[in-house]
Amino acid sequence: MSDEWKESAADKAEQKSWKLLEKAVLAGVQEQRRARRWGIFFKLLTFAYLLGILALFSPALDLRKSAARSQEHTALVEVQGMIADQEAASADNIVTSLRAAFEDPNTKGVVLRINSPGGSPVQSGYVFDEIRRLRDKHKDIKLYAVISDLGASGAYYIASAADEIYADKASLVGSIGVTAASFGFVDAMSKLGVERRVYTSGEHKAFLDPFQPQKQEETQFWQSVLDTTHQQFIESVKKGRGDRLKVDDHPELFSGLVWSGEQALELGLVDKLGNASFVAREVVGAEEIVDYTVQESPFDRFTRKFGASVAERLALWMGFQGPSLR
Rank of each mutant, 00 (worst) to 15 (best):
V283Y: 08
F306I: 02
E195M: 12
E195L: 14
A27R: 15
E78T: 11
E22F: 15
A155R: 03
F47A: 13
F102H: 01
I165M: 06
A145H: 06
Y292T: 04
G174T: 06
Q223S: 13
A101M: 02
V111G: 07
G285T: 06
E203I: 08
R135F: 09
D243Y: 15
L51N: 09
V25Q: 05
A27Q: 12
Q71M: 13
A315S: 01
A162W: 06
D3V: 12
K16Y: 11
I141M: 05
E4Q: 12
R241G: 01
V270N: 05
S171R: 05
K139L: 08
Y199C: 10
Y156A: 02
G242S: 08
V111D: 05
Q71K: 15
D291N: 14
P251Y: 08
I53G: 00
E164C: 04
S160H: 00
Q223W: 14
V284Y: 03
G242C: 07
E31H: 11
S160L: 02
G28A: 10
D271W: 04
S70T: 10
R37F: 14
L325N: 04
I94R: 04
A167N: 06
E31D: 11
P105A: 09
S182C: 07
Q15L: 15
A27N: 10
G261F: 08
K12T: 07
T293Y: 00
A35H: 06
F47H: 09
D149M: 08
Y292K: 03
E22W: 14
G242E: 09
A101I: 02
F102T: 00
I158M: 03
S153H: 00
R135G: 09
A24E: 11
A13G: 07
V95R: 04
S90H: 00
T96N: 13
R69P: 04
L208G: 06
E7A: 15
V270G: 07
V225L: 10
D104L: 04
H204F: 13
I176S: 01
S97L: 09
I40V: 14
Q214T: 14
E130Q: 10
K43F: 15
D249H: 14
K215H: 10
K142P: 03
D136E: 15
